[in-house]
Design a protein around this nucleic acid. Structure first.
Length: 403
DNA sequence: TCACCAGTGGAGGGTTCG
DNA sequence: ATCACGAACCCTCCACTG
């Protein structure tokens, strides 16, 4: 029997900001949404009393709470604080799996023999986070990841119209009561069921978790496919044997941007492509070195999305070689239509095979050049060198659409 | 020549989550 | 027309291999 904790920081981005702004404690504060086009990244519980939620547009949030205070985000600060929180986790176990900056699973089966020891440990960790960092958190304690994650929601503070109730902080779901615990839920709360799957399930009369457990497997499979069906049945029964995996390796690295206004000319498109490959290639080189598969993602004016990819036999990280191949795919796929978004991503990582490059002098030169570019940027900053293809017409650059 | 099997991997489209 | 971004994962089709 495992002991799993799901720890979730309360209103993380806002709470971190308030450490530097104690004058704002107790007020409706959000991070993000500083312009009307932006969205709320995090909301204080006081703001939530007004119905302000994360992912809400800034305009909507201001409408619900006119005296709302909007702070601009500072991701570096959140990353640093997240590392300090993680540090506290790692005093208690090596089995820490971060889900996001503000969330992690801990497998504490080793230090805590049963769930009640685990709950004691959870209270200690919460206390340490509060004492050392001044931040609030909520913990779910259970025998598996899914139930622990659900329980941490129940551990949260409760915003009501008459004030913020503290919330229990730690919630334990006892071994053996997992099934009962999930039966009360709506089907959309199951991990992997988003708006699309929910609608499919609704069409065959499934709205709640008990509906899932009473439905023949074949009906589910016809709607959702094999993988999701298997997972759904497990979760609906309160079972989840996924392990806590620390140090998950990234399987892809990408970058995408929505343009301030749609791009219509091939020249600008080409320039943006090079710029994005350059960004991704830099991250790829600083990681494992190269990637065999490079993909582009295109969103057209009408929101339709196209992806194209090319896979090489050996890992690639040379901007110009990748660009040569992707540019053809891009021009062909776009077919002169207006482009709203462009993205580049790399996957199938491996270290580039040096010997192969050395036999082609052109390849070797390119490899050396990219490495030299990285070295200069390391010393003088990211803007010290920009690829020639991205230099033209900085003046007519369109402002970013977001924020 | 056709059909089949199982496994693998690429391509392209899509969903979900934070 | 739900907002943008980054990442993981899934499905289907298809080609190739033995």
């Amino acid at each position: 029997m495992r002991s799993i904790l799901h720890i979730d920081m309360n209103a993380f981005f806002v709470s971190v900001e308030l450490l530097d702004r104690p004058d704002l404690v107790g007020l409706p504060v959000v991070v993000g949404a500083s312009s009307d086009r932006g969205v709320v990244a995090a909301a204080s519980y006081e703001a939530r009393q007004y119905g302000v939620r994360s992912a809400m547009s800034g305009a909507e949030a201001k409408r619900r709470c006119p005296e709302l205070i909007a702070l601009s985000p500072n991701h570096r600060k959140y990353g640093e604080m997240s590392a300090r929180v993680r540090n506290i986790f790692e005093r208690h176990t090596d089995l820490v799996e971060p889900l996001a900056l503000d969330e992690a699973f801990l497998d504490v089966t080793e230090p805590a023999r049963d769930l009640h020891c685990a709950a004691e440990l959870a209270r200690m960790i919460r206390q340490q986070i509060f004492d050392e960092l001044g931040l609030g958190s909520s913990v779910g304690v259970a025998t598996n990841k899914f139930i622990a994650k659900l329980a941490s929601v129940d551990a949260k503070p409760i915003p009501t119209t008459s004030g913020v109730q503290p919330g229990p902080g730690v919630v334990v779901v006892d071994a053996g009561s997992e099934f009962e615990y999930v039966q009360r839920l709506e089907v959309g709360r199951l991990w992997g069921v988003g708006p699309k799957s929910r609608e499919k399930l609704r069409r065959v009369g499934i709205r709640t978790v008990p509906d899932v457990t009473s439905m023949p497997r074949e009906v589910l499979r016809s709607q959702l496919g094999d993988a999701l069906t298997g997972q759904l049945i497990e979760l609906a029964n309160g079972r989840d044997d996924r392990p806590v995996v620390p140090d998950r390796e990234a399987k892809s690295i990408g970058h995408e941007e929505t343009f301030g206004s749609d791009i219509t000319d091939t020249e600008s498109l080409h320039r943006e492509l090079i710029r994005m490959i350059d960004i991704v290639a830099g991250r790829v080189r600083s990681g494992i070195g190269g990637a065999r598969t490079w993909s582009i993602k295109i969103r057209l004016h009408d929101f339709s999305t196209i992806s194209r990819s090319r896979t090489w036999d050996t890992p690639m990280s040379s901007v110009s070689e990748v660009a040569d191949a992707l540019d053809d795919l891009l021009i062909e796929a776009v077919a002169a239509r207006p482009v709203r978004l462009l993205g580049v991503s790399a996957s199938s990582f491996g270290s580039p095979v040096e010997q192969l490059d050395l036999f082609s002098s052109a390849g070797a030169e390119r490899g050396l050049r990219d490495t030299a570019v990285d070295a200069v940027r390391e010393r003088f900053g990211g803007d010290a060198i920009r690829l020639a293809g991205t230099l033209e017409s900085r003046s007519d650059e369109i402002p970013p659409r977001r924020r």
